[in-house]
Computed example of a mutant assay.
Amino acid sequence: MTGTDLRSIHHPGALVGPLWAVAVGRGAPVVLLHGNSESHRVFDALVPHLAGSLTLVGLDSRGHGLSPRGERGLTIASMADDVAATLAALGLDRPVVVGFSDGGNIALELALRHPDAVGPLVVVGANLFPEGLTPFSKLTTDVAHAATVLGSRVAPALGPLAERLGLMVHDPRIDPDALGALTQPVLVVVGERDAIRPEHTALIVDSIPRARLAVVPGVGHMVPVRAPAALADLVRGVVRGSRDPGEVAG
């Protein structure tokens, strides 16, 4: 890890490259990527568990939080490119990246599209394509998207929400076979009652050469909110493993 001084983006943060970035804590940097229609604040409950020994770098995705939408529109691929640009601007060298939900999808795309930009991954509630959601979650997402698209015709303020929900309807589109190119350790985390189909999570794990699975008991999709202590333990294991490749993480 680099010795880059991240104090310049401590609260309230700053626009770094295309994305709003904010840092808290001390120690090796760990980059946090949030889910759909969220911001870095979804990881607030994780901060007390990790900020004493790690520098948590929260990024707001394009069109989310305090980050501008830009001109490319919202796709998981373009959002992964944004992260790569911001990591380069921060001078971070292959940091551990923790991605939740769409943030997990972005982390996988980031590793595929920019393999030299990222180190070990922790992907929480990720999916390779929309059909990876459980039938109920897929149905509710499709209905919510359709409703906001229709609503935006009479209430244009709904347009950004419709676009964000469209990400879950149309993206990501990650080829499982492509994941065989990933060389870093990847910890795949899901809640026991996650919105991701168990067989789809198994597909992700089986497709990545150095992947491990961790199932957090008693929770659904919102692992960073509902089980921050358990997630913090998993993240610490990955960070330790990045320092000592012989150590099992997760």
Rank of each mutant, 00 (worst) to 15 (best):
1 M>E: 11
2 T>F: 02
2 T>W: 02
2 T>N: 12
4 T>H: 03
4 T>R: 06
7 R>S: 05
7 R>L: 00
12 P>Y: 02
12 P>C: 05
15 L>S: 08
15 L>R: 09
22 V>K: 06
25 G>P: 03
27 G>N: 00
29 P>H: 05
31 V>D: 03
32 L>K: 02
37 S>C: 13
38 E>A: 14
39 S>Y: 01
40 H>A: 09
42 V>Y: 11
43 F>M: 07
43 F>H: 06
46 L>T: 09
51 A>P: 12
51 A>E: 15
57 V>A: 07
63 G>C: 11
64 H>K: 10
67 S>L: 07
75 T>P: 10
77 A>W: 03
79 M>P: 01
81 D>W: 00
82 D>Y: 06
90 L>W: 01
91 G>H: 09
92 L>P: 07
96 V>Y: 14
98 V>N: 06
99 G>E: 13
100 F>D: 07
103 G>V: 13
108 L>F: 14
113 R>P: 03
115 P>M: 07
120 P>D: 11
121 L>T: 02
127 N>K: 10
130 P>C: 11
131 E>R: 14
134 T>L: 02
135 P>Y: 11
136 F>Y: 15
137 S>M: 13
138 K>L: 15
138 K>R: 15
143 V>W: 12
145 H>Q: 08
146 A>G: 12
146 A>P: 06
147 A>S: 06
147 A>K: 03
149 V>F: 08
152 S>K: 06
153 R>K: 15
155 A>G: 06
161 L>G: 08
166 G>A: 13
167 L>W: 09
171 D>W: 09
175 D>C: 11
176 P>W: 07
179 L>K: 03
182 L>N: 10
184 Q>R: 10
184 Q>G: 07
187 L>H: 00
187 L>E: 02
191 G>Q: 00
195 A>M: 02
197 R>D: 04
200 H>T: 08
201 T>I: 07
204 I>A: 09
206 D>A: 15
207 S>M: 13
211 A>R: 12
212 R>N: 03
212 R>K: 11
218 G>D: 01
223 V>Y: 10
223 V>T: 11
227 A>F: 01
229 A>M: 14
232 A>Y: 02
235 V>W: 01
237 G>L: 12
238 V>H: 03
240 R>N: 09
241 G>V: 11
241 G>P: 08
